[in-house]
Write a protein that binds this DNA or RNA. Structure first.
Length: 491
RNA sequence: CGGGGUGUAGCGCAGCCCGGUUAGCGCAUCUGGUUUGGGACCAGAGGGUCGCAGGUUCGAAUCCUGCCACCCCGACCA
């Protein structure tokens, strides 16, 4: 067992924290609430970026970059939007430092106060729509389909590595359309892209649905989200797509001439997915030995470890290992050959399990004699010895199998922990004792939603797109309801 | 931002109540040797603004005050 890790069943929160630190994904920094994403963690993000970029481009989007700073006046043009973010904004007030005249080091130069304060973007709708205003005159300028990769800042009270930090990385798509229908179609397209990404790359089954009015994005008409279930029974929102209507077009006066020569406001969407999904990746699949990474996002897919009784045996092993490494890499598989001599094989086995490397090969003197290798998979911990020449067919297949297996495991877990509930006591019991997704009737009012939240800490995660119409009575108020919605405690 | 806890070598901790040699242990690191199929062993060595700033005292890791950071529990959120 990984004796350096907190046991997942004993203390899930501590297990998660230990894991992030010990797998070398990230650490806390000198700045309150801000993390350092270390190379191994950042490599996962780079893989996420690569996969999403492909999907975004395949759906007609291009990347661009807008400023980090937003003039305060921009930010307050859309009333609901400013309301939603006002409490967590970092504000730049000065632009110069100077040496303190009393020799007490460096101070903010009071004479260098900005005429208008700058908000560090918590999201970029306003600064982007200010530009779109200049870019759009006619229907011929539409649609605009832009994505940006950026950092944003939301001044959080309580932070947790990846799951909630004051600064985080994300992508935000901002699109402009001539018609309402087209914008809604785009909003749906992108939530589908996120769902596909989650399922195919993160091996994470998700539920797609609408957010309730309480939970939707400040400034949106409608927010769609994908919700995933973590192993502790809590939900994690891992991507959102917003239909913004004409709210931002009106706030920034972005009008265009349509085909018939009439002026109209532009229709908008925005959609985002953040480094938080790395937290989801960790919490959904990992175990008491450490990370379990889906092969499609793992920075390292295969590690090769030499085993030898004396250093004279090493060159022959290294030759074999290097040959395998080069050939696998040609097939597009990322491979590391770890021939460091300061750790014993057993130490390395445990270390790469902690880091979630999907496949491990071990090559020793016995293998050289028999022309074999030992292959071990991280998800099931199964080990077997196979002919050395078979690795080129076995490994690609096994990576696919691991990808599928951890998806299926997560799906099985979600199915086992999704409950259809019609009784208020049962609703509370499930939340208190095991957690999970609860499908229950809701009367559709914000008041009921708020009361349920106050009494149970559970929120409506989404109103699933595919929820069938089903008459029932609200779990809390007993009033009539048309369909079940998804409740859970959430991150 | 409220309640609780923690801060001593890269990491994990002891010492603090009850102030007094040269601040100690395990892991890690370095050197040498033996090892290597599931977290090796022996010998030696290096490494400390005791979170920061004040104060009390002949003397502070230890007592007092303020601040900072982190963790847990609440309120707020991706």
């Amino acid at each position: 067992m990984a004796k350096f890790l907190t046991n997942r069943e004993e203390n899930y929160a501590k297990w998660y924290n230990d894991l992030v630190i010990k797998a070398d994904l990230a650490e806390n920094s000198a700045v309150r609430g801000c993390m350092v994403i270390k190379p191994y963690g950042y490599a996962i993000w780079e893989n996420i970026q690569a996969a999403l970029n492909k999907m975004f481009k395949a759906t007609g989007h291009v990347n661009a970059y807008f400023p980090l700073f937003i003039p305060k006046s921009f930010f307050s043009r859309e009333a609901a939007h400013v309301e939603g973010f006002a409490k967590e904004c970092a504000v730049v007030t000065h632009y110069r430092l100077k040496n303190d005249e009393n020799g007490k080091g460096i101070i903010v130069d009071p004479s260098a106060r900005l005429e208008e304060e700058l908000i560090i973007r918590p999201t970029s709708e306003t600064i982007i729509w200010n530009s779109y205003k200049n870019w759009i005159q006619s229907y011929r300028d539409l649609p605009i389909l832009i994505n940006q990769w950026a950092n944003v800042v939301r001044w959080e009270m309580r932070t947790r590595l990846f799951l909630r930090t004051a600064e985080f990385l994300w992508q935000e798509g901002h699109t402009a359309h001539a018609t309402r229908e087209e914008a809604i179609e785009e909003t749906e397209r992108m939530i589908n892209v996120y769902a596909e990404f989650a399922e195919n790359f993160m091996a994470l089954p998700v539920l797609k649905g609408y957010k309730s009015d309480n939970e939707k994005f400040a400034g949106a008409i409608d927010t769609y989200a994908i919700e995933a279930l973590m192993q502790d029974g809590k939900a994690l929102q891992s991507g959102t797509s917003h239909f913004l209507g004409q709210n931002f077009a009106k706030a920034f006066d972005v009008q265009f001439t349509d085909k018939s020569g009439r002026l109209d406001y532009v229709w908008a969407t925005s959609w985002g997915l953040s480094t938080r999904t790395i937290g989801a990746l960790i919490m959904a699949h990992s175990d008491n030995r450490g990370l379990v990474l889906p092969p499609r996002l793992a920075p390292l897919q295969v590690v090769i470890i030499p085993i030898y009784n004396n250093s004279a045996q090493l060159p022959a092993i290294s030759e074999k290992a290097t040959e395998i490494k080069i050939r696998l890499e040609k097939a597009g598989i990322s491979v590391k050959y770890d021939d460091r001599d300061n750790n014993k094989p057993g130490w390395k086995f445990a270390d790469y399990e902690l880091k979630g490397v999907p496949i491990r090969l071990a090559i020793g003197p016995r293998d050289l004699e028999n022309n074999s290798v030992e292959i071990a998979r991280r998800d099931t911990l199964e080990k077997k010895t196979i002919p050395a020449d078979s690795v080129y067919s076995v490994i690609p297949e096994m990576l696919e199998e691991i990808q599928k297996n951890i998806y299926n495991k997560a799906l099985q877990f979600r199915n086992d922990n999704t409950f259809i509930v019609d009784d208020w006591n049962e609703f509370q019991n499930i939340l208190d004792n095991q957690g999970g997704f609860i499908m229950a009737h809701w009367d559709g009012t914000a008041e009921t939603e708020e009361k349920i939240k106050q009494e149970t800490k559970a929120t409506i995660r989404c109103i699933p797109f595919d929820a069938p119409e089903e008459r029932g009575r609200c779990i809390y108020s007993g009033k009539p309801s048309e369909r079940r919605v998804l409740f859970a405690r959430a991150y």
